[in-house]
Amino acid sequence: MAQSKTARASVRAGQASGGALSVLGEYKYLIPLNGGKNVYVRNLLTGKTSRVRTDSDKFVEEIKSLADGGHGVKIKAELDVLQTSFPDHGWDVTTKRLVDAGVFGES
């Protein structure tokens, strides 16, 4: 399957910054798309970027993998920033779904 221009640009941005997309020196795990319905998940552990629906099991699996690898606090903080920045995109619902699934440990 061919990669979109956006996906290729995301990969190039990651390569240009040493394998990590960063903003002000911080690695960004989540790149929101389509009003919060989809997201690019940048996996520092595997070096891969996946495009997934935020309401899918694949999204939960991707975030759980990162959280289990010690990145849960940073991802949770990113979700909080997304909710503040884009309150109409449902990031609070996405975060609740992850918390309910036990992604960030015991709730």
Rank of each mutant, 00 (worst) to 15 (best):
V52Q: 11
L79N: 05
V103Q: 06
P32T: 05
D68M: 09
S85F: 05
G35D: 06
S50F: 08
G25W: 00
D57V: 05
L82D: 15
T6W: 08
K76P: 10
T46Q: 09
S65L: 10
D80F: 12
L79H: 07
S65N: 13
V39C: 07
A9Q: 15
A7S: 07
N34W: 02
E61F: 00
A13M: 13
Q3C: 06
D88H: 09
D92S: 10
D100V: 00
T49K: 12
V39W: 05
K74D: 14
D88C: 04
Y27A: 09
V103L: 03
V39R: 04
Y27D: 11
Y27R: 11
K58R: 11
V81A: 14
T6Q: 14
W91D: 09
T6C: 07
T84K: 15
D88R: 06
R42L: 09
V23Q: 12
S50M: 07
D100K: 00
R53D: 08
A7G: 05
A9T: 14
T46P: 11
V41H: 04
A2N: 14
D88E: 13
G25Y: 01
E61C: 01
K5A: 14
N43E: 10
V93D: 04
H89K: 05
G18P: 03
T46A: 09
S65Y: 10
G72N: 11
K48N: 07
V73F: 14
K48R: 08
V52M: 10
T6H: 13
S50C: 05
L79Q: 07
S56E: 05
T84V: 15
V41S: 04
V103I: 02
L79V: 04
I31M: 13
L33P: 01
K58S: 07
S10N: 13
L79I: 03
L44Q: 08
K48P: 02
T94V: 03
V81Y: 14
L24C: 13
A13Y: 11
G36F: 00
D92T: 02
I63L: 02
V60E: 07
F59W: 04
E61R: 01
I63M: 01
T84G: 15
K58G: 03
N34G: 03
W91C: 04
N34S: 04
R51P: 00
